[in-house]
Write a protein that binds this DNA or RNA. Structure first.
Length: 260
DNA sequence: ATGGTAGCAGAGCTA
């Protein structure tokens, strides 16, 4: 059973790549971020033809998230509880049998100390508060997405250059530690304790060619799901493709027998 | 080098 998260940076532009990849890899559940589509423009028919159900929520121009699945979803939720009136669409959740999946696009934060940074930390505090309840209600829980946080210096190509910057600042890393402290384990790091791997490379300055990346996309899992986790890897080939997203997908392989 | 590129939208903002 394959679970994936991918910041597509425009689903309209990336749809052909997504459909190719769905056909080849056949992931069971996929969280998308930065779809940048209003709901009326969501490519539901194309995805259905590829064998995928979708739960999605978008807005004009920015943000937007979706959960795709080969099995139909139940109990969909399209706003972070407490932020139902926030116009920024960054949260979608659904259940697949006993597995609860939450897909998030955490705010970027722009620059440390900016209004957007304050919004990011407030959003993360609300997420943390909600996940405390959600993890109690759903023992088999996955929380995945673009967290816009590189948890440690191992997750940064040049820690000295990035020190104190947005995506790595102490307050952001503390917010990530708080999520993990709820019992939500970082599956990639658990399965690859020493591996340096990135999920995002800036479009600018030939960052991908020089492997100047950060690991900011994550799949967090409660203990029962962690115990069923066999492997977690970055699908770097999609970052190499023509007209790529600036993020590569992150894929978690689960033992399905442990999830039913 | 306070730049660089990509997407949306059609100039400037966001990342």
């Amino acid at each position: 059973m394959l679970i994936a998260t991918w910041n597509v940076n425009s689903l309209r532009v990336r749809l052909p790549q997504l459909l190719d990849w769905l056909g080849q890899a056949r992931p069971d559940i996929v969280g998308l971020q930065e779809t940048k589509l209003v709901d009326g423009d969501f490519p539901e028919a194309e995805l259905a033809a590829a064998g995928y159900h979708a739960v999605y929520v978008g807005q004009p121009t920015y943000n937007g998230v979706a959960l795709l699945s080969r099995q139909a979803a139940s109990d969909p939720l399209t706003a972070l509880p407490g932020r139902e009136h926030d116009p920024q669409q960054r949260f979608v959740a659904a259940s697949y049998g006993a597995l609860r999946v939450i897909n998030v696009y955490v705010p970027n934060g722009s620059a440390v100390g900016s209004d957007k940074y304050v919004y990011k930390l407030a959003w993360l505090a609300d997420l943390s508060r909600y996940l405390l309840a959600a993890s109690a209600q759903s023992p088999k829980l996955l929380v995945m997405g673009d967290f816009n946080i590189a948890p440690t210096d191992l997750d940064v190509h040049d820690p000295a250059a990035w020190e104190g910057q947005v995506l790595v600042s102490p307050a952001e890393r503390a917010a990530f530690v708080e999520l993990v402290s709820l019992g939500l384990h970082d599956t990639f790091r658990h399965l690859n304790p020493q591996t340096q791997a990135f999920t995002w490379w800036d479009y600018r300055a030939a960052a991908f060619r020089r492997n100047q990346g950060l690991r900011i996309d994550h799949i967090l899992a409660t203990q029962p799901v962690l115990a069923a986790s066999r492997a977690c890897r970055v699908e770097i080939d999609l970052r190499r493709s023509e007209r790529p997203s600036d993020h590569a997908p992150l894929v978690l392989e689960l033992d399905p027998a442990a999830i039913v």
